[in-house]
Design a protein around this nucleic acid. Structure first.
Lengths: 133, 133
DNA sequence: ATCTATATGTTATAGCGTAACAAATCTGAT
DNA sequence: ATCAGATTTGTTACGCTATAACATATAGAT
């Protein structure tokens, strides 16, 4: 577990740990099963921890998967929208942010007086490794 | 109903009609309730119709809402990724596509040998009208 | 000590989506 | 016309995702 996981509650730390250990997206229910031995009994225990972790930016929710993934570089994405490339074969997630992309979306929002609160950018497909295999 | 809805089966036409009439996103179950009087009984009847409509580009799935919306301009978005701005207050959806945006995402994919199959771009927030009110 | 805010535990339930199988309908070829 | 194959439809049952509501416990401040 990285130092990013400081000052988390027990449940939050367990959920974050499970996500980090796996490395690929996990559903809340998969996390729950993973943590039964640590005393987890109910989905809500997972969802509550996830809410906080997402709030803090330690975990991202992938809308197109209904799943969650540990953030790879919590400090790198200040300000810009984050995009995800998700391999449908191996589950690997690449996280990136692109200034031009962010400016483009902000630009549209500005021009239309739209006030963004949360933005989702997800590319599903095949990663380099999996499209060769 | 617009001319776009030609050569649809009865169920597809009913589902498309419900979405078009409402104008804002609807969940599959809301559509189901809307169509009970037309003989719909089960979710699958809705989901099957939605699958085909999405395939044909007449309807879009909004991942961040688990909902569906009738496409506003089926012919306008050839080639580029489509982005959605979704107002969390009134539910209004603005659909747009932006060449620079598309190039940016394609560029990232090319550089990383990632083969995109489906892309989701959704901005949640407040539309001009609702942020004034 | 007690108050307040936050975190946790637990049960039940709501909402989203599909598997599996049966029946009907539509198509085109002979 | 009718037959075979493909597509569409109907229906039941089930699994996965997420939250409401309420009870309990824990931590920090005064």
């Amino acid at each position: 577990m990285t130092e990013a996981a400081a000052d988390l509650t027990r449940n939050q730390a367990l959920v974050y740990g499970a996500l980090e250990k796996t490395g690929t997206p996990m559903s809340a229910y998969t996390i729950l099963d993973e943590l039964r031995d640590d005393g987890f009994r109910a989905p809500l225990q997972v969802y509550r921890a996830l809410d906080k972790l997402v709030e803090q930016g330690l975990v991202h929710r992938l809308e197109s998967l209904n799943a969650f993934v540990a953030c790879r570089h919590a400090s790198c994405h200040r300000g810009g929208f984050i995009a995800f490339a998700i391999c449908d074969t191996c589950g690997q997630v690449s996280e990136f942010s692109d200034d031009a992309l962010s400016r483009r979306l902000s630009g549209w929002a500005g021009k239309h007086s739209f006030k963004p609160s949360k933005t989702t950018i997800e590319i599903r497909g095949l990663c380099a490794g999996c499209s060769n295999a």
